[in-house]
Design a binder for these strands. Structure first.
Lengths: 208, 208
DNA sequence: CCGTGTGAAGTCCTTCACAGCT
DNA sequence: AGCTGTGAAGGACTTCACACGG
């Protein structure tokens, strides 16, 4: 009813999605919405949305629906997006730089506090106001920062080593972009974003 | 037994993953592997792997396991990765450029045949040997190429419009990187890679 | 005897359908 | 009357456990 027993990834990801959609409604000036209208507009499931929300309590008004501002605010708090989370980016190749740039827009609840690369030509240079450290110094530098989450955007061949350096440096979570199956550390929450596998899935269904 | 009834995304994604792992074994010189050894080495499930493969036939030898080369070859064919698939990249910002660069390594079964952006300073310039077209010309240019899959890496605000232009131009599949819920076209297979939502999931579980 | 291939069991996730609140 | 919140039904995915082939 009130407290998260153990919430599934799928539900959590949808909650993020709902919040994003609610913000679109806010921008459009919509103040109230029912689960049915919401589902139709964004091509989602109304009953699933209600079930997802039910994990955390009651958010709506029977007979009326949901107040957009209220639901958005409550989801923001619930997901912890009213706090700033500090990130370390490991691997400042083109992907790492793109992610860093994207995350540096400061209306977001994420802030980059450390950057690493193995390339001697990049080390010491600045990206924004941030010095790039050598990857070998991860265990030394991370504890001096408040970084909780690491974004791992190194080549597949270097990913496992970097991952392990991060785990010993006290990082709490890792978002991996390297196309490799990491041997996971149980105390570090780890997710992979694997665009290659998604592309291969699409390719499978093509006619020719 | 033999023919794909209707294969799930989850199974398909794992098949891609198995193939990737098998290639690591090939590089290490391993010629034979049982599902148990494989699962232990890569932290996967042995019985699930066998079930996944069972969708497509029999691949192993009872009492022995799998021949690495053979299984890798059969998965490659099965997933259609022995053919080249042509891509269009829409949105040549830092993310689109990073993806383009990554995909241009030519041992991969993907080849970029068209690139688009709205930025007048980029249009007409070349990325590698490829001219960047204006996004408004998508419906005109795409049919002249053999592009089957589009990679959509534009800002969220432009994603829906670009998506629709792509669908009318005859694209068969879209891999969306924009953090927005697309209104999907039924004839176009569409997947989203949403790194923001994954990051928010990690943030949820952090202590402070 | 070992490991695959596979029905059956179990678990997790989604949809249905309706009681109850507004 | 309309819509939420929710038990119960249904479906999808994973794990179990063992018959069978090598």
């Amino acid at each position: 009813m009130t407290e998260p027993a153990e919430i599934s990834s799928l539900t959590l990801n949808r909650l993020s999605l709902y919040l994003r959609c609610l913000r679109q409604l806010q921008d459009a000036g919509t103040t109230h919405v029912s689960s049915g209208q919401f589902a139709q507009h964004f091509e989602l499931s109304a009953s699933l949305m209600r079930k997802d929300l039910a994990h955390f309590g009651e958010f709506g008004i029977r007979g009326t629906g949901y107040r957009v501002d209220d639901l958005a605010a409550r989801l923001t708090t619930l997901l912890g997006l009213d706090r700033i989370h500090n990130l370390a980016v490991v691997g400042m190749g083109s992907l790492g730089s793109a992610l860093a740039r994207y995350l540096s827009f400061n209306d977001k609840p994420f802030r980059i506090v450390a950057a690493f690369d193995v390339d001697g030509r990049k080390v010491g240079h600045k990206i924004g106001h941030l010095v790039i450290h050598h990857s070998r110094d991860i265990p030394e530098v991370i504890p001096q920062t408040e970084a909780q989450i690491a974004v791992l955007s190194v080549p597949a061949s270097a990913a496992q080593q970097c991952y392990e350096d991060l785990t010993v440096s006290g990082i709490e979570a890792v978002l991996n972009f390297a196309p490799t199956q990491l041997k996971q550390h149980p105390a570090v929450r780890t997710k992979s974003v694997d665009f290659q596998i998604n592309l291969e899935e699409l390719a499978y269904f093509l006619s020719s």
